[in-house]
Amino acid sequence: MTKLKSVCEEKNYEWLYDTHCKTLYNFIYYKCGDPDQASDLVQDAFIKLWKNCSKIIFEKSKSYLFTIAKNQFLKEVAHHKVKLNYTIVGNYDTEVAENPEFLLEEKEYMKTLESAISNLTTAQREVFLLNRIEKKKYKEIAEMLSISVKAVEKRMHLALVKLREDLGRNI
């Protein structure tokens, strides 16, 4: 019989951190828009995991971390504008040469899109960004949020409709 992995073992605990910290951080960031708050919540969640390491099955650690961070976030309501970084890609040489306004328009569009994303409800935004930026499948998102896949799809659909409305003619 293989021995069960224990969360209390330092190397397993570290592995969990290295594997999940970035996703957990982004997940919280998409909700709150505050990098400091997101870092704090990641830290708190992992400390809590350590304190309860003997009670938590290694395989369940991921969903434990997400639940802890999510609930803690709900207690600290403050919302900020969710700022995102981006690099404009494209064939600069030809496109910029042919149309000098290209860069400007592109920047404008990204700015409008960023602000439209920020204006989504928390529920819509996290689903949208987890799918787009984190490339998570609907099923994975459903697990992270403990909701059904259908609910994820509905939120995704609504997010897109809302973004389209907000962007208006700016296409």
């Binding site: 951190y17 990098p35 981006y86 569009y109 899109l113 960004l129 930026i133």
Partner: peptide, 15 residues
């Protein structure tokens, strides 16, 4: 909008 949103990234996280 779905294509362009792929270009976004969350801020850097000092893990």
């Amino acid at each position: 909008l779905t294509d362009k949103s792929l270009l976004f990234e969350a801020p850097n996280f000092d893990s």
